[in-house]
């Protein structure tokens, strides 16, 4: 077991796109074990993605039990994850181990369905909502080289967003 060093912005390596996992072997499972330990050692400790430790593979871990207790899926090992459905929009404040000290508002889907593989390569399917769905989306962004900084929204824009009505034609 090992806690791996975390890349922090402005490290350009955080903007690279990760490759799918092909080999589900002992080395992969050892890495997942190390990544899990690294996640739990972090300040939030509820999610991590492989590119954050400089491994360019599509691997995400989420475990929101520290926040939600047992009202969630527990530890999700999401390898080659795909969002297959999403609905609802919510603004929420996010922070990231790779962006120390800064937090900001980001819009995410409220409910998502994710297809992924586990450490053994078996197919998995999860439905997540709220906090857990937000964590999964945040971590999956790392696989495409995106940080929550890429999705920041102005609070004013969200909360005071005005509908522009067309004036009625006479």
């Amino acid at each position: 077991m090992a806690v791996l060093p975390i890349l922090t912005y402005p490290d350009p390596r955080l903007h690279r796109k990760a490759e799918p996992v092909q080999e589900f072997d002992g080395e992969l499972r050892q890495f997942v074990t190390d990544l899990t330990e690294t996640m739990y050692a972090g300040p939030g400790g509820v999610g991590i993605a492989a590119p954050q430790v400089d491994r360019l593979q599509r691997i995400v871990l989420v475990d929101v039990r520290p926040k939600l207790g047992d009202d969630c899926h527990g530890l999700m090992i999401l390898i080659n994850p795909e969002l297959v459905a999403w609905e609802g929009m919510a603004v929420g404040r996010e922070g990231c181990m790779s962006v120390p000290d800064f937090t900001g508002n980001v819009i995410r889907a409220e409910r998502i369905q994710v297809r992924a593989q586990d450490g053994e390569g078996r197919d998995r399917f999860y439905e997540c909502q709220g906090f857990e769905a937000r964590a999964v989306q945040h971590e999956m962004d790392h696989l495409d080289g995106l940080l929550f900084l890429d999705r920041l929204v102005s609070r004013k824009t969200d909360l005071f967003r005005r509908k522009q009505y067309q004036p009625k034609k006479k």
């Binding site: 939030g44 991590i48 964590a135």
Partner: peptide, 14 residues
């Protein structure tokens, strides 16, 4: 005579 709503601001630290 005003509407007031109070929301938690949850910061998701990831």
């Amino acid at each position: 005579g005003i509407e007031i709503t109070v929301h938690p601001v949850d910061t998701v630290l990831l």
